[in-house]
């Protein structure tokens, strides 16, 4: 039990004024250091799930959400849970509170009552870590979408969280902004060994994670490594998700009786494999 940062047990949830359940008996355990991508089409319940992880929503009687050993039901734990599980949201314009990058990065630290001297160091560290050096005094409306989201991540990282939750943080960005953010997330994972949970409907992005959880109508309908998930045609169709191009290409080539082994899953590997095939022909 102690090895899991996220423990979700029997979590069901219905929004007020809604007839359908937004979450149906969700069970999910995530060990420390893992990168999990939760995917599903819009309205599949994935963002609702994320809100339980840092106590923005609280389970009712039956279900339980335990983050780093702390139950979100215990009122006294919630501030600590939010410190452990930092969250970055979808809309870059609606989550920057302060008028400049550095002030915004400091916001969470101010709330936590971190002393001034330490705060200055941690703010600068996070800004540097996310490649925002030089933009400390910029106002939000003079930043690109990618920069705004990186600032939001810097604000989260400054809290030294154990879990970083990205709730569709790239879905409103242009391709270069998306690449910037994903690049930084990968770096964080490598250098900080942080547990990362990304919510996304982009399977190209999900493919970078260690594990993909597929949701549909509030239920988890698939859970496995990217390779395992991509192999399940019906599952993806059921979840209305679009496979990465390369996975689709491999499947179509197999249909044409081109021999491609299981372990080939990336562009690089497929190019190499096809070249080898060509030579042996």
């Amino acid at each position: 039990m102690g090895n899991n940062i996220i423990e979700i047990n029997h979590l069901s949830f219905r929004y007020r004024h809604s007839e359908e359940l937004a979450l149906k008996n969700v069970n999910l355990h995530v060990p420390y250091g893992q990168w999990v991508a939760v995917t599903g089409h819009n309205g599949s319940g994935k963002s609702t799930l994320a809100r339980f992880l840092n106590a923005l929503l609280i389970p009712d009687a039956e279900g339980a959400v335990i983050i780093g050993g702390l139950n979100t039901k215990t009122e006294g734990c919630r501030q600590e849970i939010r410190r452990k599980a930092a969250m970055v949201f979808q809309n870059p314009d609606n989550q920057m509170v302060a008028p400049t990058v550095e002030d915004d990065v400091a916001f969470g630290l101010e709330n936590a009552g971190v002393p001034y001297e330490e705060m200055v160091i941690r703010v600068q560290e996070s800004i540097d870590k996310l490649g925002l050096t030089g933009l400390e005094k910029r106002e939000p409306h003079r930043l690109s979408g990618g920069q705004k989201q990186r600032a939001a991540i810097a604000g989260a990282v400054a809290m030294k969280p154990e879990l970083l939750i990205l709730d569709e943080a790239t879905s409103m960005l242009d391709p270069s902004g998306r690449a910037e953010v994903i690049d930084q997330v990968q770096k964080l994972r490598d250098s900080e060994n942080m547990t990362i949970l990304t919510i996304t409907h982009d399977l190209n992005e999900a493919a970078l994670a260690d594990r993909i959880v597929v949701m549909r109508e509030g239920e988890i309908i698939g859970d496995g490594t990217p390779a395992q998930i991509f192999r399940q045609e019906d599952l993806l169709k059921e979840a209305s998700l679009k496979k990465p191009f390369i996975i689709e290409l491999i499947a179509s080539l197999r249909e044409k009786e081109v021999d491609i082994p299981e372990e080939v899953t990336t562009e690089e590997e497929l190019v190499n494999h096809l070249c080898r095939l060509k030579q042996t022909m």
Partner: peptide
């Protein structure tokens, strides 16, 4: 926006 911002502030421990 106000709603999003309020949620973001809460998530960042504003009290």
């Amino acid at each position: 926006r106000a709603e999003d911002l309020a949620v973001a502030m809460e998530a960042r421990g504003y009290a």
